[in-house]
Amino acid sequence: MSETAEAQVQDEAAVEPKEPLFSAKNKRLLSDPLNDDNPITIQVLGICSALAITVQVKQAFVMAVSVLFVMIGANLIVSWMRNLIPSRVRIIVQLVIVAALVILVDQVLKAFVYDVSKQLSVFVGLIITNCIIMGRLEAFALGNKAWPSFLDAIGNAAGYGWILIAVAVVREFFGSGKFWGIQVIPDAFYEMGYFNNGFMILPPMALVVVGIIIWIQRSKNTKLIEEN
């Protein structure tokens, strides 16, 4: 992946020497999805996976990395092919590209982190239908060159990933008293009568946690505060 990206970088630089690689516009492609235009909390996309696989930090991390990979690959390929794809069949072409990448990810997960792959189960396959990926392909990669598409992919996948991991940290801490599978709430607490919160393990609580993140984000970020 890094090689192709670098090749692309050189290519871009040769053709358009005027725009620096990290121009203000390109930087915003990276930073906007982290906060002002976050795919989960602002655009409310990809919620289903955010609810389903945020019980443990490990799962959420693997999911975030998988989405990052698929997203970069799909955005780059679609961006390169954008002038060859007839617009009538573009959705099918995009689907094929994403599906190929997802199968790749799935096989890698099965080979190297089998237990996590088991836990993620169907949700790896469901990356294909993740609204964020299709949305970015449609809205961005189809109309932009490879380098901005690459940055856009990283930005959005990171924006998705950090919410996922943040929710998972909260849920795993209160739901199982653990972080990354390691117990962090000392036994003394349990002996004193502390109990893990079973509600945190259920999907509705993920929705509440995402809601709380949206609440905090909106009250901190003045751009997002709506009039009335």
Partner: peptide, 10 residues
């Protein structure tokens, strides 16, 4: 409802 789902044993 919170208690019911969070601490069902109680």
């Amino acid at each position: 409802a919170f208690l019911f789902f969070a601490y069902p044993t109680w």
